[in-house]
Design a protein around this nucleic acid. Sequence first.
DNA 1: ATTGTTCATCGCAAATATACGATGAATATT
DNA 2: AATATTCATCGTATATTTGCGATGAACAAT
Lengths: 103, 103
Amino acid sequence: MSHPKSINYKEDEINLARYAKALGHPARIAILKFLASTDTCFCGEIVDELPIAQATVSQHLKELKNAGLIRGSIEPPKVRYCIDPENWKKSSRFFEDLFKKLI
Amino acid sequence: MSHPKSINYKEDEINLARYAKALGHPARIAILKFLASTDTCFCGEIVDELPIAQATVSQHLKELKNAGLIRGSIEPPKVRYCIDPENWKKSSRFFEDLFKKLI
DNA sequence: ATTGTTCATCGCAAATATACGATGAATATT
DNA sequence: AATATTCATCGTATATTTGCGATGAACAAT
């Protein structure tokens, strides 16, 4: 792919897009809602909850982690996941700012 | 692709994911911010503003339109775009509901 | 030492997204 | 009629995403 015009979006636009992209799949929305409702949980609980295979759930968790929306702490042989409160608040503010630009 | 477990996400999760996905690219964030700041605009103005080709801008506009976030009205030989106030409010509420689940 | 549990990662296939140039459709101007 | 403007769409190339089964790593329990 070529980029004749050099791409230079603003930092905030890139960050907001990254958060939005992470939220852009029903499975990940469901995972986050589940996480928010239970405070913390293990991968296995999500697998039981959702209609997708363990490998796929693990991949979605990885993406949410990469986006910064969740965190995982090892608790052998499991991994306890929770929402990252700081980034959660940050992304909440990002969306709020975007939407209040019009309403 | 195969789907051994039948996929059945909740309606709201699907809708929120669709809005989020539409917001999941810096160019589309930039387009929406520009649209919000100018009320309405033509495709050409966005092409001047953003570092991407006309065909690509048009495609992003199409995706935003498919997601329901913007509308376009023909004004020959141009198309005037504006944010869809109703769906904008709706998606704003969706995100608000998601984020307030934790904070 | 062997087995079981839990989860990440690898390797693969198919689908979707991103970007562009070229072309087409619609209309206004000459 | 011919030309110019504006924008959508087509065709194409490449990258990313989504999903799965299989395997591996880490630890617990036998």
